[in-house]
Each structure stands twice: as C-alpha cells, then as structure tokens.
Simulated scan of single mutants.
Amino acid sequence: MGFHTFDPAGADRLDDPSRFRFCSREELLAALDPDPSATVADLGSGTGFYTDEVAPFVDKLYGVDVQSEMHERYRENGVPEAVELVTANVEELPFADDDLDAAFSTMTFHEFASDAALAEIRRVLTPDGRLVTVDWSASGDGDAGPPVAERYDAADAASLLEDAGFSIARVDERPETLLVVATA
C-alpha cells in the first residue's frame, strides 16, 4: 500500500463528530475491552479524536503519531491527563518489549501496515495483548477516506496480522470500514 500520512492542513476533518458513523466510541471500547489499569497506545492518534474517547477507561494512553504537527494541534485542543504524546513511526516504537496491554488504530492501518510495523506492534504488546484495527475498507466506494487502491479489505488485514504472528479474534467487513481484533 505504501507509507503516507494525513495532510495536517486538513486536520479539522479529524475532529468532526460525524466520524463516529464509521466507528463509535462504544464499538471501539467494546473491541478494545480495556482494563482500567491498562497501558494502551493509539497508533496514528492524529488530533486525538479517538484517543480522548479511550483515555477515561485506561490508566495510561500513548498518543502515537509520526507527525509533530498533529500533536501540536492536539495540544491546542487539550490533552487529557492520562495521555502522553509520542512522536514516532510505528516501525520504531519507543516502548520496551511487552510494554503495552493493548493498542488500537482508527483509520490509519493503511498508512503504516508493513511487516516491520506489525512485528514492532507485536513486540511491544504483552502476551495476549490486544490490537484493534478499524480502517477504511477496500470494499468501500472511496467517497470518504483514501482512494480504494490504498486500502485493505478485512480478510487481507487479518491475513497480514496472522502472518505477523497475531491470533485473530474477530473480523468484520462493513460498508466502508473494516474491524479486526487480534491478540499477540
């Protein structure tokens, strides 16, 4: 699919509450099933739209984004106390082995999915740590999100995760998005 990033000039779109039509807070939390003492990472946190929704339910949440401009915007909006912002590429996460109880990505998997990134996520997750991926689906029409050619479908995303050593717990293909829950 190729690495690319979201243009920070369009960051206002990332704070649009209509994004919940693609993945609600409740759906994300149900898939993540976080323990209140958990340490979690939002991979591709952007301006913190979904980070803010998960933060009240965990002890520590790292908002990971490769673009410092996204963190600047997030700081302008206000960062919850439980959140620490980390500027890093998913292929080089600054966490120790087994450091995270869970991780999630919303609408960013297509931006970072590679063998190296998936191996890195698996490295930093505890044994049985959960990874929740919600992303634009290749089965969608492309009216929202990236071009269809830049997307994976649910089966392909699950296959990539299995190849990286994850066990797949759930795979959902929806009209525009996919949801995959995997464990390390």
Rank of each mutant, 00 (worst) to 15 (best):
L61V: 07
V148Q: 03
D35K: 14
G165L: 06
V64I: 12
A31D: 07
S68Q: 15
F95H: 12
M70C: 04
P94G: 11
F22C: 02
R170E: 15
T87A: 11
S137R: 02
D153L: 11
R151T: 05
E91C: 14
V83Q: 02
E26Y: 13
E150P: 04
D52P: 04
D156L: 08
A184G: 14
V124I: 14
A158E: 01
L100T: 04
I168K: 02
Y62W: 11
S159C: 10
V66M: 02
R13N: 08
A149Y: 14
M107E: 04
F104A: 01
W136K: 00
R25E: 13
R73I: 13
F3H: 15
D52G: 04
F112D: 00
D12S: 08
T87Q: 15
V66Y: 09
V148M: 05
A30N: 11
D163W: 06
V83A: 02
G78N: 09
A149V: 15
A117E: 09
P127A: 03
T87Y: 07
R25P: 04
V40E: 03
A31L: 12
F3K: 12
L93M: 02
V83E: 03
F6S: 00
D15K: 05
S137I: 01
A155V: 08
A88E: 12
Y152W: 15
T177V: 15
A182Q: 07
A157G: 13
T106C: 04
A102S: 15
D101G: 07
S139V: 11
A31P: 10
M1T: 13
D156Y: 09
A96D: 15
L161T: 03
R21H: 14
R151Q: 09
D99Y: 12
R174N: 10
G10Q: 14
F3T: 12
D33F: 14
M1R: 12
G142I: 01
Y62P: 00
S137T: 12
D143C: 02
A31G: 09
G48T: 06
G44L: 04
R122F: 10
A154K: 00
V124M: 06
L85Q: 06
T106E: 02
D163H: 07
A116Y: 14
L85T: 10
E26W: 13
V148I: 12
A55E: 10
A96Q: 14
E176R: 08
A182V: 04
V40F: 08
V54K: 00
Y62M: 02
T177C: 08
A55P: 14
E76S: 09
L118V: 01
G46C: 01
V54M: 07
G145M: 02
V86R: 00
S18W: 08
P36H: 05
P175M: 02
R19P: 04
P94A: 06
Y74P: 07
F112Y: 10
A30Y: 13
V79P: 08
A116Q: 15
L125P: 00
Y50K: 01
S24G: 15
A149C: 09
T47R: 01
I121L: 03
R170P: 02
A184H: 11
P17Q: 01
